[in-house]
């Protein structure tokens, strides 16, 4: 039986991981807490004080707390405290904690437009209302943070995306 361990790229040490590429710097961001909210977002917003609209792709997030629009009637809320108790709310929405489900990468640098062109089919001039999109073949939630971008990726897929970023933004081959 072949041992495939060597065939798989290692999981980065997330505590220290950083990618310094030509025109880009990628680092791991600490997320305080993450919750999924679905249902009557207006009711949720009224109860929690969270912006019920949520940011779309390339929306500008303001730390420490922000909300991303994941689908019709679904938000991902990032913040230090739960926006509401987990479970079903009679007002018409449901809340699940997923704080351990995601890792976040912050990306800065002059080559951000090229990264977006290689990772997504997003039209930067018309990014749309949804922050959820495929990025390098992996589902992410994307927003702007500061001068750069923040990717929220499912933790089990974070290594794959990390290695994709390193490969995709490696120096171009000489013609």
């Amino acid at each position: 039986m072949p041992d495939n361990v060597a065939a798989f790229l290692p999981i980065p040490n997330w505590t220290h991981a950083a990618l310094i590429l030509q025109g880009l710097r990628i680092s791991v961001a600490e997320l305080p807490g993450v919750w999924l909210v679905s249902g009557d977002l207006s009711a949720f917003g009224a109860q929690s004080g969270v912006d019920a609209e949520g940011l779309g792709a390339l929306g500008q997030a303001k730390t420490p707390g922000y909300a991303l629009r994941m689908a019709r009637g679904r938000l991902m809320v990032i913040g230090a405290a739960p926006p509401a108790a987990t479970g079903w709310h009679a007002a018409g929405f449901a809340v699940s904690e997923v704080s351990a489900a995601y890792r976040a990468f912050d990306i800065e640098g002059s080559d951000l437009p090229r990264l977006l062109a290689r990772a997504t089919t997003l039209d930067p001039d018309h990014p749309g209302p949804c922050a959820a999109l495929p990025f390098g073949g992996v589902p992410v939630a994307l927003c702007r943070i500061g001068e750069g971008l923040r990717l929220h990726v499912e933790a089990p897929l974070a290594p794959a995306l990390w290695h994709w970023l390193a490969a995709a933004m490696a120096p171009d081959l000489a013609p």
């Binding site: 249902g39 079903w88 351990a100 489900a101 933790a155």
Partner: peptide
């Protein structure tokens, strides 16, 4: 759709 919600929380656990 207002009476059924679905969350995939697999990667959290």
């Amino acid at each position: 759709q207002a009476r059924v919600m679905i969350h995939d929380t697999t990667p959290h656990w």
